[in-house]
Write a protein that binds this DNA or RNA. Sequence first.
DNA 1: CATATCTCGTTGCATATGCAACGAGATGAT
DNA 2: ATCATCTCGTTGCATATGCAACGAGATATG
Lengths: 151, 151
Amino acid sequence: MKLETYFPYQLASTAEAFSRQLVQVYGRTFGLSREEWRLLFLLASAGQLSSLQLAQRTTLDKVQVSRAATRLENKGLIARAVADNDRRLRQYTCTKAGRSLFNQVFPAVQSCADAILEHMSDEDISKLKEGLRALQRAVVEYGQDKVKMDG
Amino acid sequence: MKLETYFPYQLASTAEAFSRQLVQVYGRTFGLSREEWRLLFLLASAGQLSSLQLAQRTTLDKVQVSRAATRLENKGLIARAVADNDRRLRQYTCTKAGRSLFNQVFPAVQSCADAILEHMSDEDISKLKEGLRALQRAVVEYGQDKVKMDG
DNA sequence: CATATCTCGTTGCATATGCAACGAGATGAT
DNA sequence: ATCATCTCGTTGCATATGCAACGAGATATG
């Protein structure tokens, strides 16, 4: 068995390689970690979100959200407030500075991603996207199966 | 723009979710990190490899290789020796214990991966695999372009 | 009301990681 | 041969991460 052609390895290493190129853009150029970038992305798009929504929609756990949010808050990119209906939760919003940074970073990231995808045929791109969606569903379904079996 | 349908995010999060399931197998059950698993995989398959070959074929940098190898050596799964032709390099081999562990872990990982893929149609699987290969090529080509431009 | 249990967010601690620096060895020029 | 330079592997240090524990608040039971 060859590692290079082993599907799980190919998926992981290709995804990493792609991601590394984007991190170069929002990380090295704008000083954001991957978690920070995801949070900022959500908050810039959605306006206001609770800690729960953030965790669910980023697939980050609560510790990661809490820490990334602390860093973003220190940079003045987002604001955090205790939720009024349930004081355990936090309400996050994007500041003006955060929105402005996002509007700078997003086109840069986008153009990097596009530059990579330009090396692929349209057909391969749609195969990849379809295949990914199917895999995403499959992983979720597998997770549900497993929970049922474990109890 | 919705994060959940944004291609770079979908690629990264799906790959992570898939990988996480496999880590459950070789990590929680057999105590291997992802890096350790990759090194053991290569050494169990290929017999003997130099540090350079390991780094190239795992897409890990030299620090990661060195540290994962130290851990694997402490567990008695691999052996490390100074190369005779170039004494800066190391020659790595898999011990009997390492090979035996690999022969236990590999089928377990394989069956987990298969269980996930069973939730997908054969067509979606081949789309995914083709798309991935194309993306891998694209990232490599993009990297080459960039190097040329930077100098 | 009291109190037991559950859900969140944060923090402490042990470990992992990234990066720069270092030492050993190889290579090349003089 | 000498000395500078380059390539490797390892290590030190600052930071990041995962996990368990904790405290505040919410919910349920009596």
